[in-house]
Design a binder for these strands. Structure first.
Lengths: 146, 146
DNA sequence: AAGGAAATTGAAATTCATTTTCAATATAAA
DNA sequence: TTTATATTGAAAATGAATTTCAATTTCCTT
């Protein structure tokens, strides 16, 4: 287990204690499995991974734990075109957006300062106070384009 | 009924004939009601509007007709943060994006050429062939900010 | 205009992701 | 260890959207 992941698990424990939540075997297993996989997983996908080794853990608990991770700030929930809720571990660095391949489903993260500036300009143009944005580009990645 | 709307209804008829679909009383009523309301309606919302005057029209038919309108190119389906499928009439002018107020739910459309150019640059950076994008800004409109 | 194939309709059933319920169990604080 | 409270998992419920199916309607063909 990398340093980064154990730090996150530590943060989760702190958050849970602070919120009065209890730390359980299931939550520990689910959080570890989640933090180890770098994908944008759905609850169902994570449930499959987890239940390979731990048949006693139910999917409901996976759903609940992912929500908890999102509330604690360790995960971000995202919904792309397929309408499934996906979770990704939160990283220190800046806000990023996504390129999604319509063929193989791969998701590429990117970050663009121009986009942030554009957002600010649009906000002032429309006298709108923007607190969040969703920018997704759909298309075909290099491999699938061929 | 404005000229624009009757033109659209004409286009719908042409499309349907071409596709071998039949034109029915229900479809006519639903399409008219849809083209008259400028909002981003959900199937359920439109069903409520329609069934006020036409109690015999079922919600299933509204769902089906909105899909048909989208296929015919007269409507665009969009999903915002609340996960409901909303439809908007297609207008001649360019692609636009959305500002969504988290308080009152109002949806402002905007169009920005810089965003289009940015998209092209990102596509070439990542050797990605972009065919569609989704750009949504969430926040608070001027009225709700107060 | 009448007949008949094929599409459409609406109600009810189904789907599928997600949430809720609830009785049994596990946790942590006293 | 006792006790209050949170958590768990199975099953039921939810809610938007789709499918099924028998009855009806549309629109060709004569």
């Amino acid at each position: 287990m990398t340093k980064e992941i154990s730090e996150k698990k530590e943060r989760l424990k702190t958050f849970m204690k602070q919120k009065g939540f209890k730390s359980t075997r299931q939550r520990d297993i689910i959080a570890s499995e989640f933090l180890n996989c770098e994908d944008h997983v759905t609850a169902e996908e994570l449930y499959k991974k987890v239940s390979r080794r731990h048949k006693d853990i139910g999917s409901t608990t996976v759903y609940r734990t992912l929500k908890l991770l999102a509330e604690s700030g360790l995960a971000t929930a995202r919904v792309f075109a397929d309408q499934l809720t996906r979770y990704e571990p939160v990283s220190e660095d800046e806000h990023h957006d996504h390129l999604i391949c319509l063929d193989c489903g791969s998701i590429i993260e990117f970050e663009d300062p121009k986009l942030e500036r554009l957002q600010e300009r649009i906000a002032s143009d429309f006298r709108f106070h923007i607190v969040d944005h969703k920018v997704e580009f759909y298309g075909y990645c290099w491999d699938c384009k061929k």
